[in-house]
Amino acid sequence: MEYVIRTENLEKIYISKGKGLFRRKKREVHALKGIDFQVKKGEIFGLLGPNGAGKTTLIKILTTLLLPTSGRARVNGYDVIKEERKVRASIGCMLMGERGLYWKLTGRENLEYFGALYYVPKKRRRERIEYLIELLDLGDFIDRTVETYSSGQKMIVSFAKALINDAPTLFLDEPTIAMDVHAARKLREIVKDLNKQGKTIIYTTHLMHEADELCDRIAIIDKGEIKAIGTPAELKASIRQEGIVRIEGIIPQKALEALRSMGSVEKLAVEEKGGKEHLRIITANSRSALPEIIRVLVENESTLEYISPEEPTLEDVFVKLTGRTLSEDTREINEPEPDKSR
C-alpha cells in the first residue's frame, strides 16, 4: 500500500506568554496529542472536527507552515521538517480561503505570480492558467482586479491557485465556505474529477453531507486527538446498532436536564433554530427508549412537534464522539455569547 501521508506520534504544544511587565507566566496549549494516521494514494481523506480541535494545526504541520513539537510526518515521501521545500513543491494548498490573494492584482496576475513562486516554467504556466480558466469557468472575471470580486469568485480563484502547479496532493480547507449552493456543488464535482485523475485530496469541512459525499475515509478530530477514523459507512455502522431519535419542539432547560440524566440516553445534542429546539439523541436502543423519552419531555412541559427515529449520519457519529454537533460548535464561534450577567 502506498501512503501519501504518514504521521507518527505528532505532537504540537503552543506556548504563549501572559501579559504584564513582570512574572509573565507561560501558558501551554496542547493542540495535537500523538496523532498517528496515514492517507493512501488516490483517496479523498476528510478531516472533521470542531473549531479548535486541532485540524488546522495538523494541516499547517503537514504543509510545513508549522513545526511539530515532537513526532514525525512525511508527505509524498518527504519529511516535513527536513525536506520542507520538496513537500511544498509536491502539494497544492487552499488554506486561507479568499485571503490568500493580492487584491490589487487581477486573478490571472495572481495565478501567474503563484505559478512563478512554484517554479512552474513560463510556457507551462500560461498553458496551465488557460486550462484552469476553462475548467473553473473563470473567463468572465479573471482579468479584473481581485478587489472587485465577490467572495465566491475569490474562493474559486484561490482554488485555481491551489491547482497551479498540478501537484499530486491537494490540501483543501473548507473550500466551499463562501460559495453559493450551485458553485459549491460544481466545485465538489471538480474535486471528484481531480481525484479520478489520481490526485490525493485532504479535505476539511464542517459540512457533514459534503464529507459524506466526497470522502473515501474520514478522521474525526477533537481536542487534539483522532477520535475515529474510517470510511463514512464504517463510522456510521459503528453506531448503527444504537438508535438515533430526532425531536423538534419547544423544550425547556429542565426537560433537557431530565433527558441527560436518563440511563438510556447516551448522547444528546441541542440546536436552536427559529425559536425551537432540535434534539438529536443517541440511545442504546431507540425503540425501547422512545416512550420513556416522550414521557420525560411531556412531564417537563415540552411542546413536541416532530419525533422520528433516524438512520445514523456522520453528524451522529460526531455527536457520539464529541458530545456536540458540528453546527453547534460553529455557532459558538460565529455568534457572541449572550450576556449572562443580566
Binding site: 490568500g100 512554484y118 517554479y119
Partner: peptide
C-alpha cells in the same frame, strides 16, 4: 493582506 501564508506554502526560497 493575508498572503503571507500563501507565500510560505510555496517552495520559493
Amino acid at each position: 493582506v493575508g498572503t503571507i501564508e500563501s507565500i510560505y506554502l510555496t517552495p520559493a526560497r
